[in-house]
C-alpha cells in the first residue's frame, strides 16, 4: 500500500471542526483520503463495511482513526470499545482528538486501548501544528499493523 493510498477516518460530528481539521490536513500537505463519519454508528459502519459503506468490504482499514469523544448515537469511548472488541479491528490505531483533558476521559481512553490522546487547542495555529504532527507521525513514521483479514 503506497502512502497516498492510506486512508484516515475522522470521526467528528461538529461540521466546523470537520472543515478545520480537513483544512489543517490540507495545509500540512497531507493529500491522503480523509473519510468523515458524523457519529459513532457511522464510524463502525465504515470500519465493518456495513449499511451505506457495504461496498468497502474489499477496501483496507484506515491507517488511523481520529476519534472525537462527544458524538451522537454512540460516543467515542463506545466506538473505541467496539473496535477493540472485534477481532478484525483489534489492532486498529486510534487517536483520540477531543476538547477534554479531564483525567477521567484520559484514563477511560487509554484503558480502552487508545493509541494516542490529543487535545484540540482553541488556538488554530496550535491546532494546525497538532494535526500536522499527527499526519506526519501516523502516515509516515508509524508502521501499521500487518494487513488484517476482512470478511
Amino acid at each position: 500500500m503506497s502512502e497516498s493510498n492510506k486512508v484516515i477516518l475522522l470521526v467528528e460530528d461538529n461540521p466546523d471542526d470537520v472543515t478545520l481539521t480537513l483544512r489543517a490536513f490540507k495545509r500540512s500537505h497531507v493529500m491522503n483520503t480523509i473519510a468523515v463519519a458524523r457519529d459513532g454508528i457511522e464510524a463502525l459502519d465504515f470500519l465493518f463495511a456495513r449499511g451505506a459503506y457495504a461496498s468497502r468490504a474489499k477496501d483496507p482499514l484506515p491507517t488511523v482513526v481520529i476519534l472525537d469523544l462527544k458524538l451522537p448515537k454512540l460516543d467515542g469511548l463506545g466506538v473505541l470499545r467496539a473496535i477493540r472488541a472485534d477481532e478484525r479491528t483489534r489492532l486498529q490505531p486510534v487517536v483520540i482528538l477531543t476538547s477534554s483533558k479531564e483525567e477521567e476521559d484520559l484514563i477511560s481512553g487509554y484503558s480502552l486501548g487508545a493509541n494516542s490522546y490529543v487535545r484540540k487547542p482553541v488556538d488554530f495555529t496550535e491546532f494546525l501544528e497538532a494535526v500536522k504532527v499527527l499526519g506526519i507521525y501516523w502516515l509516515m513514521m508509524n508502521e501499521s499493523p500487518p494487513e488484517r483479514k476482512r470478511l
Binding site: 466546523d16 471542526d17 488556538d123 488554530f124
Partner: peptide, 21 residues
C-alpha cells in the same frame, strides 16, 4: 460546568480557525 466548558470551546475553535482561514 464541565460539559458547558467543553461545549464552549468548540465554537471558540471555529471562531479562531475561520478567522485565520
Amino acid at each position: 460546568s464541565y460539559s458547558v466548558s467543553h461545549d464552549l470551546r468548540g465554537p471558540l475553535r471555529s471562531m479562531d480557525g475561520f478567522s485565520l482561514a
